[in-house]
Design a protein around this nucleic acid. Structure first.
Lengths: 159, 159
DNA sequence: GTTGAAAAACGCGGAGT
DNA sequence: ACTCCGCGTTTTTCAAC
């Protein structure tokens, strides 16, 4: 399982298919990429073992599990020490409502995407955020509509 | 396949497992939730057919397919007509580098998450954004580090 | 809802080209 | 590296409880 695995055009086509529907039988992927099932299966195994395919998951409709509200939270901080960051990182990562967490360049230090059933629930997450960490500025923006959300990455850039 | 399906505690535990690893054999899910495989399998089928489980996908590591840069793009517009929005929506949705696209409340009208190999590639996406649509203000924030990213929703809020 | 079991589909691996 | 073929497992369905 080399970590610097090279991907050819067929690997990309396999990934493109699995990114959209991971339940496709190997045999069907094989025919779509012009292979028989054994080498196709081996390629998929290699993609898994090498970590190109991180994992295989079921995507749940947020509205069907009472999570219609998503909030983007921008955070500025004064403390930029390593020790503070590690504490902050683990504190945020443990909050299940936080589904995305990025360190940013520019005037905003961190950006979170939070998924909750309503504004009251968001307020509880917000209080947990500011209680656990010394944050100098926290700003919340509410999403009104999810127009596009995909886990399929654009695979046209593979070297 | 009713669209207003109610989920009980066992359904939630099944979803929690499948959100993390959709390759688990039905038999193992069954034992983990304290069921035998037949009713467990039926529940999973119901969750799929009713759309609670939208689909099953492979998650690809962005760095391994040459996509280490993510950019958040905030957009303000002057034109708020329905016709303009429909044009804008389809134009943006067709860009594969745009993986998330939200309509927002507050002073920002739209927020995009864009995934690209480098800043030069982002510039080409940016030019496509402003060429296809009359946007009054576009601002780009670059992510330095992805600290957390999960597709697993918090399932503690199901009614 | 449970068990058990059979049919079909698929994953997986060996032998050969 | 791929094709072909077949074994073993898992899924899926169907009984009866």
């Amino acid at each position: 399982m080399p970590h610097d695995m090279k991907l050819d055009a067929i690997d990309c086509r396999i990934l493109a298919l699995l990114q959209v529907d991971a339940t496709l039988p190997v045999a069907e992927i094989a025919t779509q990429v012009g292979l028989s099932s054994t080498p196709c299966w081996r390629r998929i195994q290699r993609l898994r073992a090498s970590g190109v395919i991180q994992r295989q998951v079921a995507l749940v409709d947020p509205r069907r599990v009472n999570l219609p509200v998503t909030v983007f939270v921008t955070i500025r901080t004064r403390d930029h020490s390593e020790a503070w960051f590690e504490r902050f990182r683990t504190s945020i990562t443990l909050i299940p409502e936080v589904v995305e967490f990025f360190r940013m360049s520019g005037d905003i230090d961190y950006l979170l995407r939070v998924v909750v059933p309503d504004i009251a629930a968001y307020d509880r997450v917000y209080k947990r955020l500011i209680a656990d960490n010394a944050l100098s500025d926290v700003s919340s923006s509410f999403a009104m509509e999810e127009i596009k959300f995909t886990t399929a990455l654009p695979l046209g850039y593979v070297p």
